[in-house]
Amino acid sequence: MSKIHVTTTVNGEPAEFLCEVQDSLLDVLRDQLHLTGSKEGCGSGDCGACSITLDGRLVCSCLVLGVEAEGKTIGTIEGLANGDELHPLQRKFLEHAALQCGFCTPGLLVATKALLDANPNPTETEARYWLAGNLCRCTGYDKIIRAVMDAAAEMRGEHA
């Protein structure tokens, strides 16, 4: 059976892979490109653990076909840190202990980055609604929201 050849860009680097039509982009990222930061919590769009950006837009990679990546620009959690230097959001999640098991964390970080790119100064309510599709069974969300608001303030230069 011949697979489909797809050429795309992941975190700024050209990438190519072979996949079947029914393979989700999440399957491809994890199994073909070995970018295992994106997680599969549900496979049905409910949990947000697989959050990525597709041409800059936040989506669930479990609800995108691998073949749809052709010619697109993909951003994953692996592109967040600058080499060994953590992104301010990652630092703040650690400082605020905004994770326990960590399964939801990559998706939350990608989703929060997309929020702050669109709106650097969100209210807490805006942040909570934006992140309503990212489920966390451990933290109770408060620490996550505190980390998000603190990181946003730092990124706006309000801690300097």
């Binding site: 769009g45 959050s51 936040l58 989506v59 669930c60 609800l63 309503a132 599709g133 990212n134």
Partner: peptide
């Protein structure tokens, strides 16, 4: 409709 992510599509 769904979450921010779902609304992206």
């Amino acid at each position: 409709i769904g979450s921010t992510q779902v609304q992206g599509r």
